[in-house]
Design a protein around this nucleic acid. Sequence first.
DNA 1: CGCAATTGCTTCAGTGACTGAACTATGTTG
DNA 2: CAACATAGTTCAGTCACTGAAGCAATTGCG
Lengths: 166, 166
Amino acid sequence: MAEIRIEWPDPEGQEIVERLFAADAALRAHFEQVAAAVGLTVPQAHTVIQLQEPQRMGTMAGHLHCEPSHVTAIADSLEESGFLRREPDPDDRRAKRLVLTEAGQKLRGRLLKRLFDGAPIISALDADQRAGLLSMLRMAQSSDRHQAWRRLPAAAGDGSCPPVPS
Amino acid sequence: MAEIRIEWPDPEGQEIVERLFAADAALRAHFEQVAAAVGLTVPQAHTVIQLQEPQRMGTMAGHLHCEPSHVTAIADSLEESGFLRREPDPDDRRAKRLVLTEAGQKLRGRLLKRLFDGAPIISALDADQRAGLLSMLRMAQSSDRHQAWRRLPAAAGDGSCPPVPS
DNA sequence: CGCAATTGCTTCAGTGACTGAACTATGTTG
DNA sequence: CAACATAGTTCAGTCACTGAAGCAATTGCG
């Protein structure tokens, strides 16, 4: 996303937004680079990462925030490359589950390792700084009534982050 | 960007990354929604916001992190809608400067107002929380040697954020 | 000065991510 | 069983964006 440099009603708010965008740009660039390094596009990499365990395609569409038809396309490409296969869902014969092949699991491992190794923010902060940043983000996200926050995965917190009121 | 929910070597790092992605998703959604509310696409809105003062097209490409040819396309659409015009650059007759029309300036005003009014993080934190978040982000970004941070606009800080060493 | 290399923008063809509608097959409900 | 909902697929199309080719103006070097 582009830099935003404007006269803003609130200069502190401006800087926060700018820096969050910058943080995001860095993370995104990192992710893109890691994906490319193992020969995947960004959505392919997301899909592989998501596949720690078999997932129905509709569920995957939810995780990727896209339409089911797009998951079909991504799955096609990853299946063709031999990183996953479709298997029938035991509970619903309409549904298919995406399952990583052996090659897919190895790929996922490499992906995770590289992702973590170079992650910009993690490597830049010491333990105190990390804890501080994290608690701020928790505060921001738990008190925010804006609906986009609600997408935060429930599994993200360790319980210290109060649930978002509905 | 999709949620990332994985077994991570460092659970705290995982949560930070997840929350930063979530923060980004919220900001992005907000931006997109605001742009749509005034009838612009995201890149059009970025361009209008960037045009506080006339900009050469090449400079704009730099700000938008895209190729000059793409700026041509965006400028075409905004010119057609009457929000900006191309004027010759006085210092270089090859170059053109993008200038907001009166309509464009009004549009920019509405855009900024709406952007600020609903910005998720800003509205969710109180003054202390904001200051804390900001200082963390400054620390993260000033100590990070990762190149993506370097894109941070120089104007963002008030001087309290030391320059990134090259 | 004069010619070559460079720079600013445009044009155009193409790509990758993604949506939405129509369709098939299966599942659910009354 | 009929009617409807749901899972995934197919396909056509959109949107953001790139990269190469080209024109015009500018800069630099002999």
